[in-house]
Design a protein around this nucleic acid. Structure first.
Ligand SMILES: Cc1cc2nc3c(=O)[nH]c(=O)nc-3n(C[C@H](O)[C@H](O)[C@H](O)COP(=O)(O)OP(=O)(O)OC[C@H]3O[C@@H](n4cnc5c(N)ncnc54)[C@H](O)[C@@H]3O)c2cc1C
Length: 486
DNA sequence: TTTAGATTGAG
DNA sequence: TCAATCTAA
């Protein structure tokens, strides 16, 4: 008998919990991998060409990796609760295995699928896989409730990992399972929609013009290896400077699509940390970022209303501005604030943006333009190759002060001082704004401060070659403070 | 994962 | 005068 493994966002062979269990349970049997194209997701406004093209590249690699073991991966198109029971029937499968997803819509879908399969007499087994600690595994000791503040959550997370490692019971070091060749054609059943692996264009999307991260599990593993063998050492400092190409790992899209597991990342970081004290600061800090990821996954699971409501319920009725033209300027990187514009152009071109810049542009949209964070959140989902509700919503709510930020003061970045601090030499700005290439360093963060003569001398006329700033920051800051006061 | 404004002290 | 440092939000 064969066990089906339903892949959703876990496109790897190594350290894949559901795949490992399916292969083990199969014994003499085999594993049938499948992916389901679900129109509910494909037609959702949060779904964009960046994630779709990244995912399809990963699926192609996964299909090849299975093929190398003589296993044929199959693709279906339709509602999973309808297609999977038909497919299980067509394959004569005993069980369907999959890894859990914590988005409320995914939970609802998985409940539906589980019900439909059970009715059809097919066993369902689901697993924790995309996080190290899930759901309500970590609760605040004082209240017995889920954590809502990062710092105590991270402390508890690290303590639990340390305790489990000491007890040799930590995250399992599962490798790729041994796979038996399996290449059985599904019986043709009415309603079962077997399809070829689609291309991005087939699905009606455009990929980012300059995709910045190589796709697939092999590429992901190579990136992690390279990152942990060197650049991770300086992460505690380098992570804040967008001009530094090696300042961060850029594995986010791989964690998003499961071409890497969080266990592989933590394990690799712990390994180099143990080997040399020079790596310990960097590795610890980097694990801290992986914990941010788990923190937001846990927030999404325990507070699913964040999907359409502010985490701080009191702030549900903020009077955001609705200005389509300003929003468009922000999207296009035409605000007249170089650091914001360079960041948005990096996003539009490559599908990835540095964390420091995500904070700056999110803060700018919500607190300088006073536009609802939901608009920015959706735009990010459409453009990011790592676009994912938990972290994206968490990041947007944090930036717009509607979320889990625990600081006692109201956070408003000054885009120009952020620019001076984190792109001191204007290297990043110049990389993405060719129209500023002749502007001297003195004005690179604020070209509108040039006199008309200086503009002429530096080949950059404000209002012609580069936009006039869309807002006055000082003014906007006061208006935002007033808006939140109400 | 902060900022603006006040205070201080060197020149 | 200015930049470094402090502090309240
Ligand atoms: C407004 C906003 C929106 C964001 N949207 C997303 C998103 O859609 N998807 C996404 O994966 N991340 C998102 N982030 C978090 C973060 O910006 C990215 O994860 C990070 O820039 C990815 O680059 P990296 O892999 O080089 O990160 P590294 O610095 O190398 O960090 C390693 C990993 O830790 C996780 N991580 C790092 N920073 C954060 C963080 N602040 N919050 C949660 N997880 C983090 C990511 O999985 C990342 O791959 C968002 C942040 C903000 C402020």
């Amino acid at each position: 008998m064969v066990n089906i493994v339903w892949f959703r966002r876990d496109f790897r062979l190594h350290d894949n919990t559901a795949l490992w269990h399916a292969a083990k349970a199969s014994g003499e049997g085999a594993v049938q991998p499948v992916f389901v194209f679900d129109d509910e997701i494909l037609r959702h406004p949060d779904t964009g060409g960046a994630v779709v093209s990244f995912m399809l590249g990963c699926l192609e690699s996964l299909r090849e990796a299975f093929a190398a073991s003589g296993v044929s991966m199959r693709f279906l198109h339709g509602p999973p609760s309808e297609q999977l029971p038909l497919f299980a029937n067509a394959m004569g499968a005993r069980a369907v295995y999959f890894n859990k997803d914590y988005h409320p819509a995914a939970i609802a879908r998985d409940d539906e699928v589980t019900l439909a399969l059970s009715r059809a007499g097919v066993e369902v087994r689901s697993f924790k896989d995309q996080v190290i600690y899930e759901e309500r595994e970590l609760l605040a000791a004082s209240t017995g409730e889920a954590y809502t503040v990062y710092t105590p959550y991270a402390r508890a997370w690290r303590a639990k990992l340390a305790a489990e490692r000491d007890a040799q019971a930590g995250p399992k070091l599962w490798d790729a399972p041994k796979l038996r060749p399996f290449n059985v054609e599904p019986t043709l059943i009415r309603g079962l929609k077997l399809v070829d692996l689609y291309t991005t264009a087939d699905l009606g999307f455009d990929p980012p013009p300059a995709l910045s991260v190589p796709r697939g599990e092999a590429a992901a593993r190579a990136m992690l290896r390279r990152w942990c063998s060197g650049p991770i050492k300086d992460y505690a400092q380098s992570r804040n400077f967008p001009a530094d190409e090696d300042g961060t790992s850029k594995v986010s899209a791989h964690l998003r699509h499961g071409t890497l597991s969080p266990r592989q990342c933590v394990r690799a970081a712990m390994y180099v940390r143990g080997k040399s004290t020079a790596f310990s600061d960097g590795a610890d800090k980097w694990i801290g970022e992986l914990i941010w990821r788990e923190f937001y996954q846990q927030i999404l699971f325990n507070f699913p209303s964040v999907v359409d409501q502010p985490f701080k319920a009191k702030l549900a009725n903020l009077k955001w501005r609705t200005d389509a033209a300003d929003f468009q300027r922000w999207c296009d990187g035409m605000t007249g604030f170089p650091i914001v514009d360079a960041a948005m152009r990096q996003l539009n071109a490559t599908g990835w943006m540095h964390n420091r810049l995500r904070m700056i542009v999110a803060m700018f949209l919500t607190k300088d333009l006073r536009i609802d964070y939901k608009l920015g959140e959706r735009y990010f989902m459409q453009r990011l190759i790592d676009g994912e509700t938990a972290q994206n919503n968490g990041g947007w709510q944090w930036s717009s002060s509607t979320g889990t930020d625990a600081q006692p003061y109201f956070r408003i970045f000054n885009p120009t001082s952020q620019s001076r601090k984190f792109d001191e030499n204007g290297t990043f700005i110049r990389r993405w704004l060719p129209e500023l290439s002749d502007v001297p360093l003195e004005f690179i963060h604020e070209p509108s401060a040039m006199t008309p003569e200086q503009q002429r001398a530096n080949q950059c006329i404000i209002g012609r070659d580069y936009p006039v700033p869309v807002v006055d920051h000082q003014q906007a800051r006061l208006e935002t403070l007033a808006m939140f006061k109400e």
